[in-house]
Design a binder for these strands. Structure first.
Lengths: 242, 242
DNA sequence: CGTTTCCTTGAGGTAAATCAATAACTGTGG
DNA sequence: CCACAGTTATTGATTTACCTCAAGGAAACG
C-alpha cells in the first residue's frame, strides 16, 4: 500500500512550492511505486545505470563519491523531499553513490517516462530544471566552504546549512532536528579528518553554539553559529517537490 | 550583425549533441541578440537578478563566489558553449558572479521566454535539465577534488579536466589549448594558496607533464597527468548546447 | 555482557599557509 | 624603441592548521 500523491505528507510543508491540481494528478500517474530501504544500504551505485529515479519520502541518506584511492567525498545529506538519481535518469551512468542511513521510503519513477513529463506537463519539466539548479547552487556553496573556509568555519557552516534545511521539513515545533549521521560522515563531507572534525565539534559545543545528543541536533542561536561560519544570513527558499 | 544559430560555429563541434532542424529554428527565435564583453568585466553579479541568460559563443570567463570575509572560490572556468545565468533565469538571484577573462561574445536569451521554451519545445527543456545535471556532476567532481585530493593531485586534476573540456571545443588539431587564466585563478579554484599552486605547477612542469607558455597549455601525456591526479580515465561526454 | 561501532583525547609530524622579496612579463606613453 | 608602472610569476624562510597515529572510553547491539 503506497501513499497517494494527493495525500503527500511532504507537499504541504513550508519547504516546498505549492502544486496545481493538474500537476498532482500527473504525479499520481508518474509515480509507479514505493521502495522501502533498510538502513545503511546502497540505493544507487557509482558507475551503474538505473531505470528508475526516486524522491525520498521518509528517512535520511547520503550521497557520496569514491575516488580511485578510496577516499570518500560526501556530496550531500539526503533528506525527505530530495530527488535521487536525476543523473542516472538523464545521463548514462551515476558518478556518485547514494546510501540510506536510516530506513527510507522512496517514491519510484520510471526513467523512460521522463521525456513524457517534459512533453505533457511542461510546468513539471520546468520544476525539474529548477530542482537541478537548486542542487547546483548548493554544491557551489559547499565547494566554497571546502575550498575557502577553515576547520571551525566548515563545521559551523555545515551545521547551519543542515539545520535550516532540516527545519523546513520538520512538522514539529521543537528546535531540534534529527541527526542520524556519524562524525565520519561529516568529516568526509567537509574535507576534514575525523579527529579534527571531532575537535571542532567539541569547540562549538563548549561555546554553547550547538548540541548533538540522542540522534538530534539543537542550535540555540542560529545567528551566532552562522557568524562563526563566515556566512551571510539567508533563509531557506521554497523549492519544487517531485 | 549577429551570428545566425543556423550557422552556429559551436554546434558542429564534437563536444555538443546534434540538434534537429526544428530545434535550431526555435533557437533562432529564442536568441534575442549578442553581447560583446571586454576582458575582465563582470557579466553577472552575485546577489543581483538578471532579465537575461547567456550562452558563451566565444571567449573565456570565470564563475566565482565571494565569501563575507572576502575569500574567492572559483566555481569553474567558462568556455565557449557554456550556459551562463540559469540560476538567475530560474530563481530569484545569483549566488555567484561571472566575469569575462578575455573578450567574450555572448548569445542573449530572455528570462521571460524560458517557460515558453519548456512549453513549445519540450526537447529543449529536457536539454536544459540535462545541462543543469552536467553542471551538478562537474561540481561534484570539483568538490571531491578540493575535499579529498592533496596539492599536486588537485593541480593535476584541474589541468586534466580543463584540457579535456577545452580540447572538445577546439577546432584546431594542435595539442595546445588556450590558457588565459592566472595562477591566482587556479589557486582560488583549487582551494590552495597562490604560492603553493605555483610550486605544484613547477613540479608538474619539471616532470614534463605539462607546459604553460604564451597563453596556452600543452599536456604531452594526458594519461600520465591523470595518473598523478588520482582520477579515472573518462572521456568528455557530448552535452547539449543552448 | 561481551563485541562492535563510534566518540574522544593527546602527542607528534607534515603539507600547505603566510610572509617577504625578487624576477619576469605587459602594456603605455614619451 | 626604450623607460616606467603595474601586474603576474617565482623562490626561500618560517609558521601553523590540520593530519596521522595511538589508545581509552562510551554507547549501541545482539
Amino acid at each position: 500500500m503506497t501513499i497517494d500523491c494527493r495525500l503527500c505528507p511532504l507537499r504541504p510543508l513550508p519547504a516546498f512550492d505549492p502544486m496545481s491540481e493538474a500537476e498532482v494528478e500527473f504525479m499520481v500517474k508518474f509515480k509507479v511505486g514505493e521502495l522501502v530501504i533498510e538502513p545503511r544500504t546502497t540505493i544507487l551505485l557509482q558507475g551503474s545505470t538505473s531505470p528508475q529515479l526516486f524522491t525520498a519520502l521518509a528517512g535520511w541518506g547520503l550521497r557520496y563519491q569514491i575516488l580511485p584511492d578510496g577516499a570518500r567525498q560526501v556530496i550531500n545529506f539526503v533528506m525527505p523531499g530530495d530527488l535521487i538519481g536525476l543523473q542516472a535518469g538523464l545521463m548514462v551512468e551515476m558518478r556518485h553513490s547514494v546510501d540510506s542511513v536510516t530506513r527510507m521510503t522512496l517514491c519510484v519513477f520510471q526513467r523512460r517516462d521522463l521525456f513524457a513529463l517534459f512533453k505533457t506537463m511542461p510546468q513539471r519539466g520546468y520544476d525539474l530544471t529548477w530542482l537541478a539548479a537548486c542542487e547546483e547552487l548548493f554544491l557551489g556553496d559547499m565547494l566554497s566552504t571546502v575550498g575557502q573556509r577553515n576547520g571551525i568555519e566548515r563545521v559551523a557552516w555545515g551545521l547551519v546549512a543542515y539545520y535550516k534545511r532540516a527545519r523546513a521539513i520538520e512538522k514539529t515545533a521543537t528546535d531540534a532536528v534529527p541527526m542520524p549521521y556519524r562524525q565520519q560522515d561529516w568529516a568526509d563531507a567537509l574535507g576534514l579528518s575525523l579527529v579534527h572534525t571531532n575537535k571542532m565539534l567539541k569547540r562549538l559545543r563548549s561555546l554553547g553554539l550547538m548540541e548533538i545528543a540522542a540522534g538530534s541536533l539543537r542550535i540555540p542561536d542560529l545567528e551566532a553559529l552562522a557568524a562563526v561560519a563566515n556566512m551571510d544570513a539567508s533563509r531557506e527558499r521554497q523549492r519544487p517537490l517531485m
